[in-house]
């Protein structure tokens, strides 16, 4: 089974800690972007490591590949054509500052080798981000939904 970074959208408070942690961990290039919406919400966007990733399909150089439940990027093979940027539905593949290559979330692969979670997840003050199996994520949501329904029932009975 594979773990991924999941986001509980309503929890994000636009503090941008994840961006700054990510850029510190990735030579100054943040792979996660917090997008504020109408000064009422903020959405943390990063590579979703899609199962049938459009960027992988678009990459003719083989720089992007779906492996072990993630979309891995090999900078050495990147030709800088930018097709992946066009293909990505979330705009989370970005040019490097020199415009010759791209950067994207690698789920902090280096850290995982020593059993440490991705920095965006560890740093999120609101616990909006989690690194887990999807079943763990949905179970938590289900549990909260049921608890909330039952609280409604309790109020009625009281």
């Amino acid at each position: 089974m594979t773990r991924l970074v999941y986001v509980q959208m309503e929890r994000c408070l636009d503090c941008q800690a994840c961006e700054i942690a990510c850029q510190r961990e990735h030579q100054g290039l943040p792979n996660i972007v917090v997008v504020p919406v109408e000064d009422r919400f903020a959405v943390a966007l990063m590579c979703r490591h899609c199962d049938s990733a459009p960027c992988v399909a678009a990459c003719y150089a083989g720089a992007l590949a779906a492996t072990d439940g993630m979309v891995a990027f090999d900078a050495a093979r990147c030709t800088g054509c930018g097709l992946c940027l066009v293909a990505c539905p979330f705009g989370v593949i970005q040019w490097t500052p020199d415009g010759r290559s791209v950067h994207k979330c690698d789920l902090c692969t280096d850290r995982q080798a020593t059993g440490r979670e991705p920095v965006c997840v560890l740093t999120c003050p609101a616990e909006a981000l989690s690194y887990e199996e999807y079943t763990e994520f949905t179970r938590r949501v289900q549990h909260r939904a049921v608890a909330s329904v039952l609280r409604g029932q309790e109020v009625k009975r009281r």
């Binding site: 941008q16 800690a17 961006e19 700054i20 942690a21 510190r24 920095v119 560890l122 740093t123 999120c124």
Partner: peptide
């Protein structure tokens, strides 16, 4: 990150990260 700290449990805000 210090995940066993009783208050921040590892988390840091933007400023702490910098």
């Amino acid at each position: 990150y210090m995940t066993d700290h009783p208050v921040n449990q590892g988390s840091l805000c933007s400023k702490g990260n910098a």
